[in-house]
Design a protein around this nucleic acid. Structure first.
Lengths: 210, 210
DNA sequence: TGTCAATTGTCAGTGGCTGTCATTAGCCTC
DNA sequence: GAGGCTAATGACAGCCACTGACAATTGACA
């Protein structure tokens, strides 16, 4: 790796870290791109040469996690039912996500930024859009597993929509709660996915939820 | 109603219509607030006194439709299963949405704008965020119907997440297709909601989807 | 070492959006 | 119906995200 390449890498890392640190402490809207650039001592223009926009820095780490989930789903044995495959893939990939994140920024910082994403309208909106793109990708993978055509059979997209919906609900509840650890998120997700069956079964009033 | 009030109403309507017309023909990003203001012959500042932002104009009509759906769910007889109540509420309220829209703008214009929303990243993101807020509201209504506590029992949110997910899928498919009528949307939604059961049932490979 | 190409900084400009203040226009009372 | 009051508007200045263009710098490589 060149000196040039190394320098670029260092600038990129520095910008990313400075941005996330500022978002986590001061808030997203309260942080200007000039602030970030100044923290790393480069021009504002240089920031935009590394990131397409302020948003991109906030979603850099989450994107890594998402990619990992997609890979995990791809690798699931084809015998499993779709929802089961999705369930195992998330829970499993979150067991190893820690290291992936820590290579870039402290996990603790990432979790604080995650909370900022959930509580900042503009970021939440962007997050949800990314999520639907992810769902489309997952639907295609599921369809392929089952030997179906995504555009002809609604079922892959429906299952993925259900799954994605549950994930979003847990994300929101987790970020609003006070157990802001990866383990807490994992448990909440597992618990909610366990409730999918009961939620879709007959009469709720006859049986209490655990 | 005052002359003053009437004038305000006319300005608001004119701004809204001008905005939607421009979005539908030229595109959202290609339309500046100055363009909209100029079309109505008011200052840009005045535009921002009527609407919080450019986005708000794009979502004015959709918000009317959403409110109608929420009301329809509220009014559903408590005997119905949650998912069934949601299903009937949407399909039913879409039967009468036509008139509600036409009071503000031509339905045809609204449908064109809707397509712009789905194909413009920034608008799609905002739309999805609004949708999750709507889902939260629906979850509370469902919970109340069933005599449950939304924050203690995951099932209301899960059902609503599934429902919302299916709606989003159909919205996307509809706007990407070529039958851009309310009736087409209605049928697509009904068809997809009918597939929820099959999608969640056992082995997809044994039974073909209709 | 000198040449070439990539990286960066500077500057100017656009578009969304906000605060401020003076002007205008409808409203209401005497 | 004149005049004072208040709400609506316009004009202006400014912030922030983002982009294009061009010049200056800096690493790469012969």
């Amino acid at each position: 790796m060149n000196l040039r390449e190394r320098k670029k890498q260092r600038t990129r890392d520095a910008l990313l870290r400075a941005a996330l640190e500022l978002f986590a402490t001061r808030g997203y809207e309260e942080t200007t791109v000039d602030d970030i650039a100044a923290a790393v001592d480069v021009s504002q223009r240089t920031f935009f040469r590394y990131f397409a926009g302020k948003e991109e820095t906030a979603f850099y780490v989450p994107r890594l996690a998402e990619n990992q989930v997609v890979e995990a789903v791809r690798v699931r044995p084809p015998g499993e039912a779709p929802l089961e495959a999705l369930r195992r893939a998330v829970l499993e990939s979150w067991d190893t996500i820690n290291e992936t994140i820590e290579e870039i920024v402290p996990v603790e910082l990432h979790l604080r930024v995650y909370r900022v994403i959930e509580s900042t309208p503009a970021l939440l909106a962007a997050h949800l859009r990314r999520a639907t793109e992810l769902e489309e990708e997952l639907a295609r993978i599921i369809a392929e597993r089952e030997g179906l055509d995504v555009d002809a059979d609604p079922r892959p997209r429906i299952v993925v929509a259900l799954f994605g919906g549950v994930i979003r609900v847990t994300e929101r509840l987790w970020s609003a709660g006070d157990d802001l650890t990866l383990e807490g998120m994992r448990q909440l997700t597992a618990a909610y996915l366990d409730q999918v069956g009961p939620a879709l079964a007959g009469n709720w009033r006859t049986e209490q939820s655990p």
